[in-house]
Design a protein around this nucleic acid. Structure first.
Lengths: 145, 145
DNA sequence: CTAAGTGCAAAATGTTTGCATACTT
DNA sequence: AAGTATGCAAACATTTTGCACTTAG
């Protein structure tokens, strides 16, 4: 299950170079495929899936599952997710799909609580908090059934 | 997107009757299909998917997406998820796949915090906290790379 | 030279859909 | 009678896999 990369291949380099340019954005494997196809330098989709999986295992990239059967989203973890010692948490709006990055001490405390009281080591990187963002909540209030 | 049931059909009844017997367990659409097939009273899979979706929209059943391309899990929300006014949160072990139900005030507080400070309305029903459970954490400590 | 990675096309998988039929109200 | 729900099979979309070939160390 833990697949890390051992060789430094051209495809991996190119893929990473691209990902680095879009930190914090979340893109699907299909997006990545298409991007390189358009560049005139396509990478096989199996390679993309396989490298992406490795990058996830290496902690360089995060993977988010929004819904079964929508494609999974990947996100390069740039500096913006590492302010000081803080971890970056992610909230995903169920309505508009927006991904919100959160640096929140309370959340970190909650992680500690989970570990101490419930013996569960939360993985902030893989955990996505679903809910409704401010804008969508407003919109919904206005538009009734 | 919001599909609620208007007629009370036999299939819906049977399905609900079954779900009620396994509150807190999480089962896939495929599991449900097979269950009824074995009972000698199969229900069409489209019906199962469609009814399950309705039950989710009605708030009777929760749906969890663990991983894209693993089947989605459904869970009847019985009393055990409604101790008093508490909500039930779910933690999923990344290693063994175990689903842990948590009744935790701190988590509720965290939801409130999220809403007040960050304007994000967490949906406890759809949010799954990923991490590593106690047993798997122990196991990993012993078995090095 | 060996282990690892690539790419293609094919398979696998979970979910959705079209449509004719049957059931609820 | 009108509006919904059902069930089948076919369609879909994403992800995975088998395999022959290439590349990195």
């Amino acid at each position: 299950m833990n697949q890390r990369s051992k060789y430094k291949t051209k495809q991996r380099e190119i893929l990473l170079d691209y990902l680095v340019t879009v930190p914090g954005e979340h893109i699907t494997a299909g997006d990545v495929c298409e991007y390189f196809r358009r560049q005139g330098a396509p990478i096989g989709q199996s390679t993309i899936y396989r490298q992406l999986e490795k990058l996830v295992d290496e902690g360089v990239v995060n993977k988010y599952v929004i819904d079964s059967h929508s494609p999974a989203c990947f996100e390069y973890i740039g500096e913006e997710c590492h302010h000081g010692h803080e971890v970056c948490f992610h909230c995903k709006c169920e309505r508009c799909g927006k991904l919100i990055h959160l640096h929140c001490e309370e959340l970190e405390e909650f992680g500690v609580h989970l570990c101490k009281e419930h013996n569960f080591r939360m993985d902030p990187v893989r955990t996505v908090i679903y809910g409704v963002c401010a804008e969508c909540a407003d919109a919904k209030d206005k538009e009734p059934e």
